[in-house]
Amino acid sequence: MDTIISIIGGGISGLFASLELSNAGFTNITVYEASDRLGGRIHSVPGLGNSGKRLDLGAHWIHGRGGNPVWRYVQEEKLKLSENASGDADGLYLLPGGIEIEDNILEKTEKVLDKIRDDLEELTSEDVGFKSVGEYYDEKFQEYLNENEIDSERVETMKVIFNWFRLWDMADSGTGDMKLQSVSSWSEYIDHSMEELDYEPNIENGYQVLVEHVYNKIKDKVTVKLNAKVNKIYWDQNPIQLEIRNSESNSLCLVASDEVIISVSLGILKKHHSTLFQPKLPANKIQAIEELGFGLMNKIFLYYDQPFWSKDNPGVQLMHKTKITGKSIINGGKYGERLELW
């Protein structure tokens, strides 16, 4: 089919879109990527030391199996999985000073918190009378403490675990504050089946392997242009006109396209939608872009000559007696803004 299709953004969603379209018989597809690499939030780099392994600065593990399209692709294409899978809140739970929390207190508190979360899965904001997940957590956990006779020292330890639980959910939900997480949308999240396994699979030698694999399947069917930043989309014209700047030569050109797929990140849309789309998008689209939130999870990689932790149970969860607000780095000036838009 000769339909001219332009895909803006060379992340994994843009690459998969080009793969699906080429498989469907479309022959005139171009992917425009503003940076000098493909993958977007998937970004594997050489590891530290002499391990020969890659580090994933962005996406790391395959989040669930079941109907997860990434998992289906990995299985169908027989991509090799790493022997080192990703756990979830595993290992030791330590208070300041390296003091390990007693198992019985930890297990009891986790059971209470898991029930609070499980109950929320079946509810809406109208059912519980709260708009935010953070408010719901606070209220239900305090109710439990009030309704049970627990000595003060144990209560303080349980509060420490509760604080960690909220921080863990903040990272898992991609928000800087659970009071910004909507109750009404909580149950809409698709949590793919773990298929009775308690770990998340990792792709051998980094998530970039997925990007490379998809690219190798499309490279002879799809045109991919790097350093090609789309400045403006004249979407009311027929055909649609794209203003594209090449960052290497600084040259500007107009490209006609019958269909356009936008696969850039929400951060890019938030910053550029008012100038990117000509004319401006309808009010409902602008409202959706501006009101949708997207937090971030940061990684810090530490390299040791020898492990000091147990290889059988490698996780370390750091607990804090004082409440941590979890203020988003998005509010951290120019560096926060750069990270959000990455």
Rank of each mutant, 00 (worst) to 15 (best):
Q75W: 01
S86A: 15
I5D: 00
G40L: 09
G10C: 07
S51P: 04
N84Q: 14
R65L: 14
V31R: 03
V31G: 04
L38E: 06
D36A: 10
F26H: 14
T109E: 01
K78T: 02
G10T: 09
I4Q: 07
I4L: 01
L113E: 08
P46M: 02
G66F: 11
K78H: 10
H43M: 06
L92Q: 14
V112M: 03
S82Q: 10
E110S: 09
Y32N: 06
L94P: 08
L92N: 10
L81M: 10
K78G: 00
L55W: 12
G98A: 01
I4T: 11
N68C: 03
K78R: 08
L106T: 06
I7F: 05
E20A: 14
W61H: 13
T30N: 06
L38Y: 12
I29W: 02
Y73G: 02
Y32R: 06
G39A: 06
G91F: 03
L57F: 14
D56I: 09
G66R: 11
V74A: 00
V45G: 12
I101M: 15
E110R: 14
S44M: 08
G91P: 06
L79N: 04
G87M: 04
R41H: 15
L48P: 08
G9Y: 07
E20K: 15
T27R: 12
F26E: 02
G58L: 09
V31M: 03
D90I: 05
